[in-house]
């Protein structure tokens, strides 16, 4: 699999900036608006992940990786903590890894729903692993709850991602970028 190089056109840069800003806005909202009606600590709808998955679908996984890492860095600097940074980066890394693997191997068999559930689960596993290293292995007692939560949030973001990808085809700025930077969504060339 050839590693696609990042596009350096102004159009592409502008799009990445937009996506990064969106991801940051969602991170901020998730930090500032705790879901009081769902009393599970650490529970987030994962809308930032939605932006990352959208990027992976429309601009390719390397771009998604860059945006994801930048998002974690900037959001930790602006409204996070040092420990929070390690949790976030572990979660984001695991989620990106599984997203990349799935999109490059079984893309034609998996819909955005599956991608989002898998990446939400991977995000939680990554966070738990970081927490068990940094704090105590006891946090793994929390695993079943987080897995169940990722089914729920993954379904929500996956549904939204499906609708978004459908709508984005009609918006020139958000349309899928031509290969080799990204493989086609529908037919699954890779």
């Amino acid at each position: 699999m050839p590693m696609p190089s990042l596009d350096r056109s102004p159009r592409f840069t502008a799009r990445c900036g937009l996506l990064l800003c969106l991801a940051l806005i969602f991170s901020y909202l998730e930090v500032r608006l705790p879901l009081v009606f769902i009393p599970i600590p650490g529970f987030k709808p994962g809308f930032a992940n939605l932006v990352i998955a959208f990027t992976a679908y429309t601009c390719g996984c390397p771009t998604a990786a860059v945006i994801s890492i930048l998002r974690v860095l900037i959001s930790s600097l602006l409204f996070g903590s040092v420990t929070g940074f390690w949790f976030s980066i572990a979660g984001a890394g695991a989620s990106l890894l599984i997203m990349t693997v799935l999109l490059h191997t079984v893309r034609r068999y998996v819909s955005p729903l599956g991608i989002c559930v898998a990446s939400a689960a991977a995000h939680n596993i990554g966070q738990l692993t970081a927490a068990s290293v940094l704090l105590s292995p006891a946090v793994f007692s929390y695993f079943p709850v987080l897995m169940a939560a990722s089914l729920f949030t993954g379904t929500l973001t996956g549904f939204l991602l499906g609708r978004l990808l459908h709508s984005a085809e009609r918006i020139p700025l958000l349309r899928r970028i031509s290969p080799p930077d990204c493989p086609p969504t529908k037919k699954g060339s890779q």
Partner: peptide, 28 residues
């Protein structure tokens, strides 16, 4: 695109659900 009719989705849902159930049951 329709977000349905993908067999891989069922597999992913199954794996995550099994992981949750196993992790819940095994320690007990």
């Amino acid at each position: 695109m329709k977000p349905m009719r993908h067999p891989g989705d069922a597999v992913i849902y199954g794996i995550v659900l099994m992981a949750a159930i196993l992790a819940f049951v095994c320690p007990h």
